[in-house]
């Protein structure tokens, strides 16, 4: 299988008035095409820093990140992002439709094609007919669905999510997790998710990258050998699920 994202020996340092903060140290791993990969680690370990590097929002001090073999220096074309804080990442002055349309304006699409993409993306996330609503008229879970629809509308081959379900209630969270799995199935999108929720990482992923230490290194890459399709009721009761979450939790906590 082809490699969608390659992280090669990436280190990141921040210069502060107090000196240099070393956040990431020689982080390397590869994401296979079509895989769902989660990045977990204790809070403050540098997960968000890594995500900023992956999306081209920041440049590493050493090493390189390749997206489909090409070294990235700004946000790659082929990649779309869902951020944690939907209230700050959706534009409150634009309707749902215009929020989704904004990134599409720079793709060579006719008006009809654009319209068609918006309708299809909203249908994919179960928000048919919400076009003319403002984001703030929707519930938190629905707003995050709009974020996902906006990302899908650009037809990316890679979806990057930063703690996408951290700001919604537990019920909505399960719904959105299953939505993300469905999206992955429907489009075969390579998905990379940063999360602090280990259960969620195990439930969704093919592979889990565990970051540990200061500066953070890759502690381990755990293969989640639970077959798809997964279900909230059965998978979470699976003995293998419990084993894996205990294993990952131990590593995140530095107990293993």
């Amino acid at each position: 299988m082809a490699i969608a994202i390659a992280v090669n020996g990436v280190s990141m340092e921040y210069k502060t008035p107090k000196g240099t903060t070393h956040v990431l140290d020689n982080v390397s791993y590869e994401v296979q095409d079509g895989h769902f990969v989660s990045i977990v680690g204790p809070s403050g370990v540098g997960k968000t820093t890594l995500l900023r590097l992956l999306t081209g929002l920041a440049q590493p001090t050493a090493g390189e990140i390749l997206v489909r073999g090409k070294r990235i220096s700004s946000s790659p074309d082929d990649l779309a992002v869902v951020l944690q804080d939907y209230t700050r990442s959706l534009m409150p002055w634009l309707s749902v439709e215009k929020n989704i349309a904004l990134p599409l304006k720079n793709q060579k699409l006719t008006k009809a094609e654009r319209k068609e993409r918006i309708t299809a993306s909203l249908a994919e996330v179960g928000l048919e007919g919400a076009e003319s609503k403002y984001p703030w008229q929707l519930s938190g879970g629905m707003q995050q669905r709009v974020s996902i629809a906006r990302a899908l509308a650009v037809r990316p081959s890679i979806l990057v999510m930063d703690e996408p379900f951290a700001s919604v209630d537990a019920q909505t969270r399960f719904d959105l997790e299953d939505l993300v799995l469905k999206v992955r199935d429907d489009f075969g999108i390579t998905t990379l998710m940063v999360t602090h929720d280990i259960d969620e990482a195990v439930y969704l992923s093919d592979e889990i990258v565990v970051l540990q230490g200061k500066p953070a290194k890759v502690r381990d890459v755990v293969k989640v050998d639970i077959p798809f399709p997964r279900s909230q009721m059965e998978t979470r009761n699976d003995a293998r699920f419990a084993d894996l979450r205990t294993h990952v939790y131990g590593m995140v906590r530095g107990l293993e």
Binding site: T55, S75, V81, L83, R88, S89, M91, W93, P103, N106
Partner: peptide, 29 residues
């Protein structure tokens, strides 16, 4: 201007013109 908003604009590769008139100006309006 909220940095999250600017990051969102960047990751969706908005042009400087869009950044100005669709993000920063409405945000400050």
């Amino acid at each position: 201007t909220d940095p999250t908003l600017l990051d969102t604009g960047k990751v969706f590769r908005l042009t400087p013109f869009q950044m100005m008139w669709k993000v920063r100006v409405p945000n400050a309006s």
